[in-house]
Simulated assay, not measured.
Amino acid sequence: MEQNLVDKTGKTLSQWKAILAKQPFKKHGEYMAYLKGECGLTHGFANFITLKFREADAGSADPQQLVTEQYQGKESLKPIYDYLDKYLRSLGDDVDVAPKKAAVSYKVKRQFALVQPSTKTRIDLGLKLNDVPHEGKLETSGPFGTMCTHRVQLNEIADVDEQVLAWIKTAYQQAQ
């Protein structure tokens, strides 16, 4: 999205961040409403800009602490995350792992996977896959919107089967 920002909005991410820095808002929704209403941005670009701007609020948050907080009250899901994280990191030395408040993003040249504990009983694995149909457990992106093209719901470690690992590997290869 960042690559298309200037073409679609007329401003760079740095310019948008400077605009938001002048606003009195505290909440994500307030920034979103401003960007959509006052600046005429689409939901996707408003959300992207807001997320990037608010990352600065997190400062130098400890990545491990962010992951720990994601799984508070969802401890039964942590083994699924640990398994996915180990596999995703093993795909290559070029994998950039970026824990956020609600999810962990995996990138090479672009994001290819997102691991999010969405409920107390389910992790949503978001994948960015080109030309792969939505079928079976490989669903539409759901809560991820434009960040991912597909989602796999995982309730237990056995749900991370060979098919899921193959989809992850394909997403990684397509992102290179």
Results as ranks from 00 to 15, higher is better:
56 A>F: 10
56 A>H: 10
56 A>K: 06
56 A>P: 11
56 A>Y: 06
57 D>H: 08
57 D>M: 06
57 D>E: 12
57 D>K: 01
57 D>G: 07
57 D>V: 07
58 A>P: 10
58 A>H: 04
58 A>E: 12
59 G>F: 00
59 G>H: 02
59 G>T: 04
59 G>R: 00
60 S>N: 15
60 S>E: 14
60 S>P: 15
61 A>W: 00
62 D>G: 06
62 D>M: 00
63 P>Y: 01
63 P>C: 05
63 P>H: 03
64 Q>K: 03
64 Q>T: 07
65 Q>Y: 05
65 Q>P: 10
66 L>G: 06
66 L>Q: 08
66 L>K: 10
67 V>N: 11
67 V>T: 11
67 V>I: 15
67 V>Q: 10
68 T>S: 07
68 T>W: 15
68 T>F: 14
69 E>S: 09
69 E>G: 05
69 E>P: 13
69 E>D: 12
69 E>V: 14
70 Q>R: 07
72 Q>L: 07
72 Q>V: 12
73 G>Y: 14
73 G>K: 03
73 G>R: 03
73 G>E: 04
73 G>L: 05
74 K>M: 04
74 K>I: 08
75 E>R: 05
75 E>Q: 08
76 S>F: 00
76 S>I: 11
77 L>E: 03
77 L>S: 02
77 L>T: 14
77 L>I: 15
78 K>Q: 12
78 K>F: 10
79 P>K: 09
79 P>N: 05
80 I>G: 13
80 I>W: 09
80 I>M: 12
80 I>A: 13
81 Y>E: 04
81 Y>I: 01
81 Y>H: 13
82 D>M: 03
82 D>P: 15
82 D>S: 12
82 D>N: 09
83 Y>C: 11
83 Y>W: 06
84 L>V: 07
84 L>Q: 02
84 L>T: 06
84 L>H: 12
84 L>R: 08
84 L>F: 09
85 D>G: 06
85 D>V: 00
85 D>P: 13
86 K>C: 07
86 K>N: 10
86 K>W: 01
86 K>Y: 00
86 K>A: 13
87 Y>Q: 09
87 Y>T: 11
87 Y>M: 02
87 Y>P: 14
87 Y>V: 09
87 Y>S: 11
87 Y>L: 05
88 L>R: 02
88 L>H: 05
88 L>Y: 07
90 S>K: 00
90 S>Y: 13
91 L>Y: 03
91 L>P: 08
91 L>A: 02
91 L>T: 01
92 G>F: 03
92 G>H: 02
92 G>S: 07
92 G>W: 01
93 D>S: 13
93 D>F: 09
93 D>V: 06
93 D>T: 12
94 D>T: 10
94 D>I: 06
94 D>A: 03
94 D>L: 00
94 D>W: 01
94 D>R: 01
94 D>C: 04
95 V>T: 09
